[in-house]
């Protein structure tokens, strides 16, 4: 993948800083390799981050956001600050949750990281599964330079969900 992206380096490391354009090159090479549009690939990336056992630590960190899915959605406003607590030079675009009706929300992803809204759709979908909630998520256009995701909560306790034990540590 790094070869296809013509980066001039073999390893793309999670904990190192790269130029934004380089990140985009890797993502585009990935989309090409998979033969699928980039937004779809990014949604899968978001789902992977939450649901794959390799990244269990991240799922746990997100679950700290709330005891149920709605509380979790409200905690998203704090997500960039929480990320910065963990890794001081990791800055995520700010997020803003609006509650339109009891089961209708929208999440505004402010600019700063192109494609971040797609990753968030994947993350939110996987987290709904994690909490056992049934939710519908979709892109609902732009507001200025910001991207908006609409969230419709159909059922809060649709399924059992996965357990979250405060005292357990990720692997």
């Amino acid at each position: 993948m790094t070869e296809a992206a013509n980066l001039g380096l073999v390893e793309f490391e999670a904990m190192l800083m790269y130029d934004d354009s380089m990140t985009l090159q890797v993502l585009e090479a990935m989309a090409e390799e998979l033969g699928r549009p980039l937004p779809e690939v990014l949604e899968d990336l978001g789902t992977y981050l939450v649901s794959n056992p390799n990244t269990e630590a991240l799922r746990r960190l997100l679950r700290f956001g709330g005891v149920n899915y709605v509380e979790f959605l409200h905690s998203l406003d704090d997500l960039p600050d929480r990320a910065r607590l963990a890794v001081s030079d990791l800055s995520l675009p700010s997020l803003e949750l609006d509650e339109h009706a009891q089961n209708e929300f929208s999440l505004t992803c402010h600019p700063g990281l192109p494609g971040f809204e797609s990753v968030m759709i994947g993350v939110l979908r996987a987290m709904a599964d994690d909490y056992g909630a049934l939710a519908m998520l979709e892109h609902s256009g732009s507001r200025g330079a910001s991207k908006v995701i609409s969230i419709t909560l159909i059922e809060t306790s649709f399924a059992e969900g996965r357990s979250f034990d405060l005292g357990a540590t990720a692997r």
């Binding site: 630590a57 960190l61 700290f64 607590l85 963990a86």
Partner: peptide, 15 residues
């Protein structure tokens, strides 16, 4: 605090 401990452990592990 628990969040922070886990977040730091995860970041340290990655490092």
């Amino acid at each position: 605090l628990l969040y922070l401990v886990e977040a730091k452990s995860a970041a340290m592990e990655a490092s």
